[in-house]
Structures are given as structure tokens and as C-alpha cells.
Design a protein around this nucleic acid. Sequence first.
DNA 1: ATGCCGGGTGGAACCCGA
Length: 263
Amino acid sequence: MVRIATWNVNSINARLDRVLEWLEEAQPDVVGFQELKCVEEKFPFEAIESLGYNVAIHGQKSYNGVALLSKFPLEDLRRGLPENEGDPTDDHSRYIEAVIGAPTPFRFGCLYLPNGNPIGTEKFAYKLRWMARLYHHAADLLTLEEPLALCGDFNVIPEPEDADKPESWVDDALFQPESRAAWRAIKWLGFTDAQATVGAEPHGYTFWDYFRNAYERDHGIRIDHIMLSPQAADRLTACEVHRHVRGREKPSDHAPVVATLDL
DNA sequence: ATGCCGGGTGGAACCCGA
């Protein structure tokens, strides 16, 4: 049994106490973090490695940044998406991937998809270009026909049911028809949305704004996803959002999503 | 209900996120 997880921590250094606390109580085997907001030299390797994790990061000053944690060896590391789909000037650190050397090895990709707001700007165009690049890379990985988990902050609200008040997101990049169509296109390559499959529940949100008491009012959205290849989905037994973590002191605005695979 | 909060950096009437 392997527990995999994804969590946008909104600054690993500002969140370190919350992160260590959650790692100790949730005991995930493999984790993808997003929005580290730091370069490699400032990442708290010692604190996390002392809990028994191998760690690899793709860092960036101030913005973005993604990390992989694994109690098994990390092999065949990749930082960034392949550049063959354009955006050779893209210097954002938004993707990291490795083969997890578990008893049954599997591939794990951790992504932080661009937000894309406001719509009608270069930022939204960048989001869609990045999703096209992810589509091509995901398609390549699926041809390997191996267990694969693509996890992270997709910054897409797939369906109206994934928002407490969908009407308040109609002008937002996360809920645009183009964003949702690109998300579905990736899924239709052959992925299983772990939470929608075995963790489906009303209000299964993963993000709540910091203001207007969004968490207390459950004014949330589901934008952090665990997508599984058929070979991984066959082994999926559970998926849950650790929403209580969002209610703690000095929380991230995202909650962790955890899936259990019978691997 | 407009980044309202909360990170970043750097010293901003700044940047960013969703």
C-alpha cells in the first residue's frame, strides 16, 4: 500500500511547521509540493529529510517552485516540461517528475499549472500554452503503459459541482471553457481523476480564499487533482482531502489531497 | 465583494496568487 499526496503549501519556509506536522500525522509515502517560493539553497532539506524522505526540488526565487518527497528512492528525475512545444523562454519552475523506486515502481509527476488571470491577457494565453505542453508530455508518458500519477495544483475548476458558488468564477481563468476543455482533453487521454472516482463527495474542495472567511463559509473550489494512468487507477483504493489542515493556524490556502494505491 | 489576505522581496502608492 502506497499513500501519495499533493499540496500547494504557499511558501515552504512560511509553512514549515504546518508541513512537518502534517507529514508526521498523515505519513504519506510520496508527496508533491507546489509554490515553494524559494531557490534550492533556501529549501529546508534537513527538516524534511529527517522525517525519512528523499527530496528533490525545482526551485525559483519568490514564485512557483515544486518539490518531490519520497520514502523510496527517486530515480530518473526530470525538471520542467519538454521544451518541444514552444515557450523556450519559459523560466517558471512548475514541473518535476521522477520514477519512484517502490517495490512496484511508478512514475510521479508534480505540477503547478499557471493561474492565468486576468483572462484576455498574455497570462491566460500562457496558461493555455502550458496546458498544451502538459497534454503532449502526458500523452508521451501514457504510451509507456506503466503506473503513473500526475498530481498538483491544476488551477482548473473542472465542473460547476467543483465550486461552492460557480457563478462567482465565470469570469475567472480557472473556470473558462478553454481551461476546462484543456483539462478534459488531458483526462480523456486516459487518466482517472482519483478524487472524483473514489473520493467523490459534495464540497470536496481543495482551496479556500484567505479572506471573507471563505473556509468557515466553505466557499471553496476543487483545483488540486491526482490523475492516474490506467495501470495506477487499477490499484486505487481511496482518495481524500485533508481539509482540516486548512483550518489550522497560519495555514496554506490549499488543503492536501491524499490517495491510496494498492501497489 | 474591488485581492478584502498573505506570501514574496526589499524598503513600494511594489510584485504575485485564485
